[in-house]
Simulated assay, not measured.
Amino acid sequence: MSRIGKHPVPVPAGVDVKVDGQLVTAKGKLGQLSLTLVDDINASLEDGKVVVKPANDSKRARTMWATSRTLINNMVTGVNQGYTINLEINGVGYRAAVQGKELVMQLGFSHDVKYPIPDGITIKCDKPTAISVTGYDKHKVGQVAAEIRGWKKPEPYKGKGIKYDTETVLRKEGKKK
């Protein structure tokens, strides 16, 4: 039995969740998200909570049970509170700024890197070396943060590059004489 899947997803005040067959829709103050469940999973709304159960005893139903519950929980949390990922830029002359609908980064290349900000995502640069990616879709926020980090991953010798604020870069010792 799934330890995660058996817990119902609580629906906070201000969030409207609708279950229509395999389609689960969550609407809140930040936006609206929908998810189509696989055929092996059944979801229902009981007492202000979304209950997810496997439709049969197949292996696919057991594996998708907790996954579906977690995806529904991420939707409900996203439209209610939203998600934020913070990035740090380390390196001499490395900086970022938001100009209109683009994130412009100077990362030591011969040209500035211009990243168009997708819909549903808000990017702020409080300092030239700090980037904050915010949105209501957890998957999209993580994907945008990974794409920004992918332009200049942190290197292990001097630690230069873009890293998550929770990430620790394992440093290596340089050449010895």
Rank of each mutant, 00 (worst) to 15 (best):
M64D: 10
M1C: 11
R69L: 04
R62L: 09
G82A: 10
P118A: 09
K158P: 00
H139W: 02
V76M: 03
Q143C: 02
N74F: 10
Q81F: 03
L45F: 11
Q32V: 08
Y157D: 08
Q99T: 09
D165W: 05
V15A: 14
A43C: 05
R60D: 10
K6L: 07
E155K: 11
A96C: 12
G21I: 09
I117F: 09
V76F: 02
K18H: 08
A13C: 02
D137R: 02
V15E: 04
G120I: 06
Q99V: 12
I121R: 00
N86D: 14
A66T: 05
A61F: 06
G93Y: 07
P10R: 13
M75P: 00
N56H: 14
V169A: 01
G161V: 01
K18R: 14
K27W: 03
R69A: 12
L71M: 15
T122M: 13
K152D: 01
R69Q: 14
A96G: 14
L87I: 00
K177I: 02
Q32N: 05
G31W: 13
R149G: 01
K124L: 15
T168M: 08
L23W: 00
A13S: 15
Y164D: 07
S110R: 07
P8Q: 03
P156N: 14
K176L: 15
I72W: 01
G78T: 06
D16F: 08
G159E: 09
I148Y: 00
K163H: 14
T63L: 15
V144Y: 00
K152Q: 07
K138N: 13
I123R: 04
